[in-house]
Computed example of a mutant assay.
Amino acid sequence: MSDANNIPGGNADDAIPDDWAAALAEQKSSADGGGGRAQADTVRPMQPEDFSDIKTEPPSDVNLEMVLDVPVTISMEIGRTRIPIRNLLQLNQGSVVELDRLAGEPLDVLVNGTLIAHGEVVVVNEKFGIRLTDVISPSERIRKLR
């Protein structure tokens, strides 16, 4: 800041534009190289070929520990359906909603909403589980994302 607080009747807010003006003038003089001519004509955008001589090697020791603790949501989907809001509002206890799957068809296993496998429901120690019957290959998962 400047000495605006030391000037009788001066205000620190009045000094802000002066500080900006001084900073801009200093920046302009350094950009001119002191010679008064801007060097903007020598500046050009970078092109991909400018980086062609840079050699980067993949890291030899990839640390997956950080990724292994990231939580994901896994869900099983029995089926889906589309109904109008009018019918949705009429649902109550005991209502049956028809799904687009046949009885006995495998369930979809989704991780964060992405299909990764198919499976069937099992009961183990009085708890539901799923036995994976078909795991989608990583290349197939990537293809479905496009």
Rank of each mutant, 00 (worst) to 15 (best):
E98F: 07
R101G: 01
S60E: 13
Q93F: 14
P58T: 03
I130G: 00
G79Y: 07
S139D: 15
T114W: 08
S60G: 14
E140G: 05
Q93K: 13
V124T: 04
P58H: 03
I130S: 00
T81F: 07
L88P: 10
E126Q: 13
V70K: 03
V67C: 03
D69K: 07
L89W: 11
T73E: 14
Q93P: 01
D100P: 01
V111S: 09
R131V: 13
E105L: 04
V123G: 01
H118R: 15
N87I: 09
V135A: 07
V96E: 06
R82P: 01
L115Y: 04
P138D: 12
D69H: 09
S60P: 02
S60Q: 12
P71E: 14
E126W: 00
R80P: 01
V124M: 01
N87P: 07
N125Y: 00
D108A: 05
P84F: 03
I54Q: 01
T133S: 14
S75Q: 11
L68G: 00
I78D: 08
V72W: 10
N92H: 10
V111M: 14
V67M: 09
S139A: 10
S95K: 03
I136N: 00
R131L: 13
R131F: 09
P59Y: 09
R86S: 08
V70M: 07
Q90H: 13
I116G: 00
V109E: 02
E120Q: 11
M76V: 15
V111N: 09
L89T: 09
E140D: 15
V96M: 10
R131H: 13
N87M: 13
V123A: 03
E120G: 07
P106T: 04
V111K: 02
V96N: 01
V121E: 06
P84A: 06
A103F: 15
I74E: 11
I54L: 13
S60W: 08
V121D: 03
E77C: 10
D61A: 09
L89R: 03
V109G: 00
I130A: 04
V62W: 10
D100V: 08
A117P: 08
V122L: 11
K55Q: 13
K127G: 01
I74L: 11
I116D: 04
L115K: 02
E65R: 05
P58N: 08
D61E: 12
L64V: 11
T81N: 10
N87F: 09
L110A: 02
L102G: 06
L91C: 01
L115C: 06
I78Q: 10
E77T: 13
L132I: 15
I54S: 00
N92Q: 12
R131I: 08
A117R: 03
G129H: 01
G119I: 06
T56Y: 12
L107Q: 03
L89Q: 13
L107N: 02
E140A: 06
I83S: 02
A103L: 15
I85R: 09
V122K: 05
V62A: 05
I130F: 02
P84C: 00
V72A: 04
I85A: 12
D108T: 04
V135N: 06
D61K: 07
M76I: 15
F128H: 03
I136V: 15
M66K: 08
S75I: 06
L107A: 05
V70D: 04
